[in-house]
């Protein structure tokens, strides 16, 4: 718990300089953390980092434009901040970042699956972290889970566990989990034929309830109330409950994030019906990395789709 105390100290140190410090506190149950907006030392005492500090606090930064805020960031959160900065959506001088070496976060879907017959996540009354294990109490029994088995996919391929931009860095930087993104998740998906993939999306999207949680959780979806999904002029989508419209919305979301998405995975985590919506963005991120050697949030400079070069050596144009 040394890390937690150190972070709290860093938060308290910056509190007088900012409107608010954004981090995490405890959530509705022991398995869930939640965003925490700290304005006092008391608030800071409720700060909780660690395995359940899942939310990406970068989501809230554009709302604070014009005010000075500090934000506690995991490596992936820092990428989102980096991307917001490089697009000029937030100002560097208005944001102070507190970084720390992230050890990975939980994937609740995996926990639910691991619990299986043993019970629901809502029934968990206590959670203890013991080294590589999580010890859960539910229905009066203890269940030991291997942390590695319930860690989010993005953490399993994490190249940037230490916030790459930070004004204050607490703790020792840790080794990254991976040195490059092999997009193995896409490879699994792409083992399917084109027909199977189309059928896959048809089936997945038929579950979509058009709640737009994916969009609302995205730190880079800065259009907010003005999203084209619900506007009449322009009118890209009908409000019909059709797979076509629902899939098209996912395509719009992904396309608007091409060259911008940092892969934080909040969209997919937010989906109440468990549609793997991150896949589309991962596919675009792979193209963008391959074509323009650009990793959103990490590489500086203009995002690749807002600029060009006269010659594009990596784009193989069709000879006809």
């Amino acid at each position: 718990m040394g890390m937690q105390k150190e972070l709290q100290a860093a938060i308290k140190a910056i509190l007088p300089e900012v409107d608010c410090v954004i981090g995490w506190g405890s959530g509705p149950d022991p398995l869930h953390g939640a965003p925490l907006f700290m304005r006092s030392e008391d608030d800071a005492n409720r700060f909780a980092s660690g395995f359940f500090a899942v939310n990406n606090p970068a989501l809230f930064l554009p709302e604070y434009k014009g005010k000075k805020v500090a934000v506690v960031v995991k490596g992936c959160d820092a990428r989102s901040v980096g991307q917001l900065l490089s697009e000029g959506l937030i100002k560097r001088e208005e944001v102070s970042l507190i970084g720390f070496p992230c050890q990975g976060v939980v994937d609740h879907d995996k926990v639910a699956a691991a619990l299986g017959e043993k019970g629901e996540m809502g029934e968990v009354t206590a959670v203890l972290e013991e080294g590589d294990a999580l010890v859960l109490t539910l229905r009066g029994e203890t269940v030991r889970l291997n942390k590695a088995d319930v860690t989010a996919e993005k953490c399993m391929r994490c190249q940037y566990p230490n916030a790459h931009i930070a004004d204050t860095f607490v703790g020792e930087k840790r080794e990254p989990v991976a040195t490059a993104d092999d997009f193995a998740d896409l490879a699994v998906f792409e083992a399917m034929s084109l027909e199977e993939r189309q059928a896959f999306w048809e089936k997945e999207m038929s579950r979509c309830i058009r709640c737009y949680a994916c969009r609302n959780a995205c730190p880079l979806c800065v259009c907010r109330d003005h999203c084209v999904a619900t506007s009449r002029d322009p009118s890209w989508l009908t409000q019909a409950d059709s797979v076509k419209d629902k899939l098209f919305f996912q395509v719009i979301h992904a396309t608007h994030l091409a060259g911008r998405c940092t892969g934080c995975g909040e969209c997919q985590r937010a989906c109440p019906v468990g549609i793997p919506v991150l896949l589309l963005k991962r596919s675009l991120a792979r193209s963008v990395e391959k074509l323009f050697a650009y990793r959103a949030g990490i590489d500086e400079g203009t995002p690749p789709l807002l600029t060009f070069t006269l010659e594009e050596p990596t784009i193989k144009e069709r000879s006809w």
């Binding site: 395509v251 396309t255 091409a258 060259g259 675009l284 193209s287 963008v288 074509l291 784009i315």
Partner: peptide
């Protein structure tokens, strides 16, 4: 057309993920 080239190339790369040839 320079912008178009980048954007269209990226779009083309997305199609297989959607199951579109």
């Amino acid at each position: 057309n320079y912008y178009a080239r980048r954007r269209l190339e990226v779009l083309k790369g997305l199609l297989p993920t959607l199951g579109i040839d």
